[in-house]
């Protein structure tokens, strides 16, 4: 097994008095898609949002344990969440383009981080991002139109383009296809697969079929505990744990 890119050790997360995650130890490998699955409320999204510290925005949320990315401790006092989130991008459940033009949506991260030194470079990077997200051909001639004029699937790919524009190392995806129709879902799944070679991807999904289709590794959560983790094929065909077995066969969840 290769050295893990993201390593969670003894992670406990609390929302006020409620504990959402119990003693999670999880390794996530670079340039692979890791799927976090489990019934709703199992803590998979909480773990995802702990990786780029989006949980900091919830005042009552408390993190305990250690989480490292590329050997850097995410929760060390010296960490600047702005720098962290610039390198650990996130795609959300519902497509949430800004109420700006398609171009401005993709350029947003570049502008706040001042990653482009000239207008030319900005345009090039926006184009590159949209191409990487497989959206360029559909929007090339209407970059000035508002982002929410696109269809749901296109909007989600716009959000992915927006995320990869700042060239993060990791992309976190929180049920990115749950609001999309099957055709749009297929397009986005294809895109995720193609992004794997450049990014480490962690995806929370409700759909086991999706996990099976796009991920290389799968982690199964239940009631805040990590039950089982391994190669996707193994987890689905030969689960070691009875709870996993019950979940993938549809008996719980």
């Amino acid at each position: 097994m290769t050295k893990p890119f993201i390593a969670a050790r003894a992670v406990n997360v609390f929302y006020g008095a409620n504990q959402a995650l119990f003693d999670i130890d999880l390794d996530i490998e670079a340039n692979k898609v890791t799927a976090l699955i489990g019934p709703s409320g199992c803590g998979k999204s909480t773990l995802l949002r702990s990786i780029n510290r989006m949980n900091d925005l919830i005042a009552a949320c408390r993190f305990d344990g250690s989480l490292q990315i590329g050997g850097q401790d995410v929760y060390a006092p010296a960490v600047d969440v702005v720098a962290l989130r610039a390198q650990v991008g996130m795609v959300f459940q519902k497509p949430n383009p800004f109420p700006k033009s398609i171009y401005e949506n993709v350029a947003y991260g570049l502008k706040i981080h001042r990653l482009a030194t000239s207008k030319r470079e900005m345009q090039d990077r926006v184009e590159w991002s949209l191409k990487s997200a497989g959206l360029w051909d559909e929007v090339a001639d209407r970059l000035d139109e508002p982002g929410n004029s696109l269809s749901g699937g296109q909007q989600q790919r716009l959000c992915i383009a927006r995320t990869i524009a700042v060239q993060p190392k990791v992309i976190l995806m929180d049920e990115p296809c749950s609001a999309l129709d099957p055709i749009a879902t297929a397009v986005v799944e294809e895109l995720i697969d193609s992004l794997r070679k450049d990014y480490t991807i962690v995806i929370v999904t409700h759909s086991m079929q999706q996990a099976a289709r796009i991920s290389q590794r799968t982690a199964f959560f239940h009631m805040g505990k990590l039950i089982e983790v391994g190669h996707t094929k193994d987890v689905f065909t030969n689960p070691q744990n009875e709870q996993t077995q019950n979940y993938i066969t549809g008996r719980i969840g």
């Binding site: 925005l57 991008g89 996130m90 947003y108 706040i112």
Partner: peptide, 18 residues
């Protein structure tokens, strides 16, 4: 203003004031 828009911005590494 929906929280999802704020989340998107924070997720890209924007500061609160940005």
């Amino acid at each position: 203003v929906p929280q999802s828009l704020r989340d998107a911005s924070y997720g890209l590494g924007a500061t609160h004031s940005e």
